[in-house]
Write a protein that binds this DNA or RNA. Structure first.
Lengths: 156, 156
DNA sequence: TTGACTTGGTTGCACGTGCAACTATAAACC
DNA sequence: GGTTTATAGTTGCACGTGCAACCAAGTCAA
């Protein structure tokens, strides 16, 4: 590895770069599943995963728990609703907010993708080794909470 | 953490999700630098980092070493050339290919960003702890080489 | 009640990207 | 030679995203 500019900088050791590459390769395979099978976006999948886990919640709640920007959530919700996977009902406490929940169809899709996700994750961890995978899990959380010094709106 | 659907799936423990979140938070700060300071794209920054390290190379070479898709490289190169940061010269061996290299201006920009990147990376590693950071580095490489079972074209 | 300010959510626009299709040159084969 | 097949690089188009601006409902205080 020569370095004509003597800069001493190597992209291949730059943590943000490595993280992005790793995230991309790790995500690709699962993305293919929810995209080809249900034509879903990553954000849609994430929104669905939240509703699947927590039941009913507002868009705002999703933003907070998942650090997804609100415009992304808004559009993902619109898409999921259009596909009949999600339903909105007005909030009784706040007429601006809407309570979101998965429809039966949405629950079925989530059940399917949840299963796939679990086995995908399991396979990935197996390839890395349980020890290493657990380690990675912890470190990533550290990375996420570091630097994440709470910015405008709510996160992100 | 309740789980109404009993799916057993938790997005917060899904490795692809964690990797993406970590990558995003880790990248954000540095992205602000090359974007606000030079109006550069992430891909442009990466292409520049390659040329800065390796000197002169073709677009194809960049694709191979950095696993960036060729259309992204093509556009990044066009942009960098437009800004006068990069120059093309026809390859003597292959009239389809062009040898890319940074101009003096490009070298100066790379020197600046390279410095910034090094200190950014150093700060990040310091926050994680050297031990953990080194660990992360290794694991990420493993993640990248796993799953990366060589697809069409050259990588990506 | 009225006004200033906050907050839940949506929308317009510009932009980077993924993919497929395309041009031009090179290499392989008969 | 001539014909196929692979390769370097570009381009058109559709699409998801980031950001700023926006609307409507809530909040708080005078």
């Amino acid at each position: 590895m020569n370095d004509p500019t003597q800069s001493g900088f190597d992209l291949q050791d730059f943590l943000p770069y490595l993280l992005n590459q790793a995230a991309e390769t790790a995500s690709r395979g699962f993305q293919d599943i929810y995209r080809s099978r249900y034509g879903m976006t990553r954000t849609q999948w994430r929104v669905m995963a939240n509703l699947g886990k927590f039941g009913a919640m507002t868009a705002r709640d999703i933003c907070i728990t998942s650090h997804i920007e609100k415009t992304k959530v808004s559009r993902a919700v619109a898409g999921l609703e259009h596909e009949g996977l999600l339903a909105r009902s007005p909030s009784s406490q706040d007429r601006r907010a809407e309570v979101l929940s998965l429809t039966d169809k949405g629950l079925a899709v989530f059940a399917d993708l949840g299963r796939e996700a679990i086995s995908y994750d399991r396979a990935l961890r197996a390839r890395l080794g349980q020890q290493v995978a657990g380690n990675l899990n912890l470190i990533l959380r550290a990375v996420i909470s570091e630097t994440n010094g709470s910015v405008g709106d709510y996160g992100e």
